[in-house]
């Protein structure tokens, strides 16, 4: 495979990353959100493997394997279990209406391309074009956290931000040092486990997984005192 082909492939996967980010933002059914999230993890693993091949960086293969196992399989499986057990299948009405969210997302993506332009010019890496998309994905993940009401979707948004950061690391510097990456992967896993535990706790305490209910509860508690 030539370098040009690798670059084409990386760009192609980057475009797919952006697509998954948009899809995450657009979906309302829990399980499809989860599927897209799993797909994003698989894409990430594939991108890492291709960049590893293109740059002959052996450590990146391990990163790719970790992404595949953790982000493509383990985390979606964990979250799927939580969703099954808690019977949350649909996100309630989002805070912002769907088409407006899409418009904002579009604007944010354009903004990312705009601000990354001067940086792209200074980079010599084959993956430099993916930088703008990685930034856009980070921001879209955040947007997802802002516009959703269910705690689970917010956590998926958070994990999507993490995915995008991983992608940015591959794009900007051909991956972080392996030690750092293992550390982060482990953190994310622990975070997901803790979130899972929290969902059950929150559910038993508040009878709901909606963030607003928790707030309301807190405010009422304040008023009582």
């Amino acid at each position: 495979m030539s370098a040009a082909l690798v670059q084409q492939l990386v760009d192609g996967f980057a475009a797919l990353m952006l697509l998954t980010s948009f899809a995450l933002l657009a979906q309302h059914r829990m399980l499809s959100v989860l599927h897209w999230f799993a797909g994003q993890g698989l894409l990430l693993a594939a991108t890492a493997a291709i960049v590893a091949y293109g740059t002959d960086n052996e450590e990146l293969y391990i990163s790719a394997l970790m992404a595949l196992l953790l982000k493509g399989m383990l985390l979606p499986w964990l979250l799927r279990r939580v969703i099954r057990q808690l019977h949350v299948h649909r996100e309630v009405e989002p805070l912002m209406n769907g088409s407006l969210t899409m418009l904002v997302a579009l604007g944010v993506t354009l903004f990312s391309f705009h601000i990354i332009q001067p940086i792209e010019k200074t980079s010599l890496l084959m993956t430099r074009d993916s930088m703008a998309i990685a930034t856009a994905c980070v921001l879209l993940g955040m947007l997802m956290m802002i516009t959703r009401k269910k705690a689970i979707t917010q956590v998926i948004g958070f994990l999507a931000v993490e995915n995008a950061l991983f992608f940015a690391a591959i794009g900007a510097t051909n991956g972080m040092p392996l030690v750092v990456e293992i550390g982060i992967a482990f953190d994310v896993l622990i975070a997901a486990l803790i979130f899972g535990l929290f969902f059950f706790q929150i559910r038993t305490t508040f009878d709901s997984l909606e963030v607003d209910t928790m707030n309301a509860h807190l405010i009422h508690k304040d008023d009582d005192e």
Partner: peptide, 20 residues
């Protein structure tokens, strides 16, 4: 007392602002 969404939105807008 706006809640977690407002705080996330503040963070988001701050990041956008700083980037810009």
């Amino acid at each position: 007392q706006r809640g977690i969404h407002a705080y996330l939105a503040y963070t988001f807008i701050t990041i956008l602002f700083l980037l810009a």
